[in-house]
Design a binder for these strands. Structure first.
Lengths: 334, 334
DNA sequence: CATCTCAATGTAATCGTTTGCAATCAGTTT
DNA sequence: AAACTGATTGCAAACGATTACATTGAGATG
């Protein structure tokens, strides 16, 4: 790799002038600038980002930690962030916490040494604690919130979404509606459960703990929870399920199939988060859709706001949309 | 952020000693080492990777460019690479080419300035050209090959996989077997087409151009191609399809449904690449499964081999596996 | 006791940029 | 002609680490 020294030598100027010719063209005489440009071109010169960042104390990188890159929702978040960052000339360091606080801690530690100028994180239960090692870094929490008062947040209206899902089921005539959500230490699970509660109460139904399950976010937790709920005796078994995230929804659908329940005749299902899987499964799934890519974009924009010195943390909430497909219908008489 | 200067000052030693205490403990007296360690601890010292890399001319980072992070296959590749790199203390810069050579060129340019020690890339048609700007960088091509003689490659046995898929269909009694693959400038598409050819020839069937379609890798290209093939008059219409990648397979399945064809009664389908979607669609899809995560792991290991100076490029080919589910069956008499 | 050895530490150069400050020089202005 | 201006350019100091080389001093050796 050729350095700016080489360029300067070839153009017969000092490194200072070479540097200025490339990054502050207006400070340099026309002829000189052209000579330097040409030299740079000839040598295929590419500035060494490390040296530049070191000197300028500005790396033009941001960190991004998602909880599960294999989950299409998170992949979309990541793409939204990364595309937006790139537009602004920023490079994204992408890490995966795999929902494990320890892995997240490691990612944060690694990140620290690379001096990102900001961090976007889909928090786990450990995030609030881990972020204390980065006291002055602008942080945006994405999709979930950790309770850290310093951080900006970009989320969806989980309560409203869950409420809409549950209302939809109630409107179809369901009275025993099961709930399956993720871990109780993740904000989205709690909020979606709250929306479910609200809807039941508003309809004069009393939330019943036996119909509610929570677990990890994984497919098999969803499948286990659904199997439990659906194995209840006929009169007590829920006639509909609201499942709080896409992975668990897959599990729930498979469990229902396993038990020979027809959807929607024997069981209605609403999932949270749309996906191609939801669109193409049979029957196509009724869902609460989230603007995943836009969440990522907005998180990144929020972060750039903070970088430009928009002092106080902001909280942006996007809305969700109920998409009615064919996995929901009136309950079977039983 | 505190620097090694701060640590040195607090421990009352020179920066040289502080540095040694932290990275070459054996060179430093016990007592001093402890003092330095403690000081580092107290200040929450984290070495500045930029400065270190600049001095050591070794960044401990690698670049990874995948073609489509939203495609679960690529997400798995990425995870395999990243997990493996992390184990070795390397950080991965992940970029997305979105199958566009220009985006890939930009990614490579950005990467250059960050001085990665190696690059893993899922090539597009432009890769061979773009890599010329990085003449001395160890490169591993993943999943596809660009024809660059410098690069190591980690791929699957596409010819064999496609042959197995086609043989399976032939074995079931199909004679008019349609082929849908990606762009002809991507090695995997070409190889899978070759495998399909081989199988037909070996069975004494003559490959028929009207039954073969290629397009971009996207779902709608698959759907368009399938619609064309399946709209042929009854006697000419293929009774089975072999589709060369996961995205296009989705499109093909949806097109078949759209046309009211039952799978596998009216149409058998074999896809390339297994996925959750393939497992859970109805009926579950017969596929050629690829070890996606392992591909990523091996690519990373190959790269580390090159970094440690294993001079010549190596070529690793993993095998695929035919998984017979329920999307394939004997042809309907017609 | 002089000398040698070797472990422990310090001094200062280095990596490749950017940038504050000083120097140069041509063209005005007085 | 002296002094001033302002546009170009160069010199050298940073940024924060690592490391070649020099220094120190304590114990071993003759």
């Amino acid at each position: 790799m050729s350095s700016i020294q080489d360029v300067a030598a070839l153009a017969k100027v000092s490194t200072a002038t070479a540097s200025r010719a490339l990054s502050r063209p207006e400070m340099v005489a026309d002829g000189t600038r052209k000579r330097v440009m040409k030299a740079a071109q000839q040598l295929g010169y590419q500035p060494n980002v490390l040296a530049r960042s070191l000197r300028q104390r500005e790396t033009r990188t941001i960190g991004l930690i998602v909880a599960d890159i294999l989950n299409p929702f998170h992949a979309l978040l990541a793409k939204g962030v990364q595309d937006t960052a790139e537009e602004q000339g920023y490079v994204t360091f992408l890490f995966n916490s795999d929902e494990q606080p320890e892995k997240e801690a490691r990612a944060i530690d690694t990140l620290r040494g690379h001096l990102p100028q900001g961090l976007i994180v889909v928090p786990t239960s450990g995030t609030r604690e881990h972020l204390k090692t980065l006291p002055n870094l602008p942080v945006v929490e994405l999709d979930r919130v950790s309770g850290n008062p310093q951080a900006s947040t970009v989320t969806v209206d989980n309560v409203g979404g869950a409420r809409a899902a549950t209302d939809h089921l109630i409107g179809l005539g369901h009275r025993r509606i099961g709930l399956i959500v993720g871990q109780q230490d993740i904000s989205t699970a709690v909020e979606r459960q709250a929306g479910y509660h609200d809807a039941l109460k508003a309809a004069g139904l009393s939330p019943c703990p036996e119909l509610m399950r929570s677990g990890q976010h994984r497919e098999d937790d969803g499948s286990r929870a659904a199997t439990e709920l659906l194995s209840m005796p006929a009169g007590q078994r829920p006639t509909a399920l609201f499942v709080g995230n896409n992975e668990m929804t897959v599990g729930a659908v498979l469990a229902a199939r396993e038990l020979g329940l027809r959807i929607p005749e024997d069981l209605s299902i609403v999932g949270f988060d749309d996906s191609r899987w939801a669109q193409t499964m049979l029957p196509p799934l009724t869902v609460i859709a989230q603007p995943a890519y836009e969440l990522g974009v907005h998180a990144c924009e929020q972060l750039f706001g903070l970088l430009r010195g928009a002092g106080r943390p902001a909280h942006l909430q996007l809305s969700t949309e109920l998409i009615i497909r064919h996995s929901t219908g009136p309950p079977h008489r039983s």
